[in-house]
Amino acid sequence: MNIPQLDGLNLIILYPLLAIYKALVFIHVPHPLGLSIILLTILIRFVLYPLISSQIKASKKMQDLGPHIAEIKEKHKGNSTMISQETMKLYKEHGVNPISGCLPVILQLPIIWLLYSVLINIVKAPNLVTAEINRVVSVDFLKLSTSLDQSFFFFPLGKNPAELFSTMGPIVLLIPIATGVFQFLQSKMMFSPPQQQNQQIKKTDDFASVFASQSTYIFPIMIGFFSYTFPVGLSLYWNTFTIFGIFHQYRIAGWGGLSSLWKKK
């Protein structure tokens, strides 16, 4: 059950990860595997940067236009062609360019998935992983001569906080808490303040509107719980991913809904 599998599509991620790892080992940097995970995640986010930037820009403008769109919907109730025509006209007037669409953004999903599946395998029993890597990798200088070093500061990357709780005590709870908090910050920045939205959106569906206003809390809490039972190496990846996302969001759209936390009226 715990046999690592790293062949097939996983190689797309495994090769760059090993290249970074070997480079770090070569210059004697401590905690090479953990740092490789961080560096590879950052590298991938940089590659995806332009794809997501245009989308964040368009999202922000669309969110700012939310009240106008609600107006249009109210005015042309039931006439969906009219609604979409007027909406498009509004976008054009305000220079929103939703030209890219969602597929470029969704391209992220397979990459997120591949990173997940490589990392969940690479933090398994070190000698098994090392053997598996040397089996699937065909480039000689990327093969491992010594066993993969899975320590990262105080944490073994292959263990999850639930397992570490008995030996390390409550300090391991910092991992799920940090993961949840970062996710919350990003979520809060992305979605505009709920009180603003609720005025505009008619409460046609109570569950949907309650969920919409609570969603900034639900997902981060879920992610926090997940990270309690996932290997530390994966939390390292996900947090790097989220923190980069927070910076990205900030650079393009500012603090967004997060500013409502300190601008309480």
Partner: peptide
């Protein structure tokens, strides 16, 4: 869709209405 938007880091990505 909320989970997906959280994972992808984008709050809205629809160019079409509806």
């Amino acid at each position: 869709s909320y989970f997906l938007k959280n994972i992808l880091g984008v709050s809205s990505f629809c160019r079409f209405r509806p």
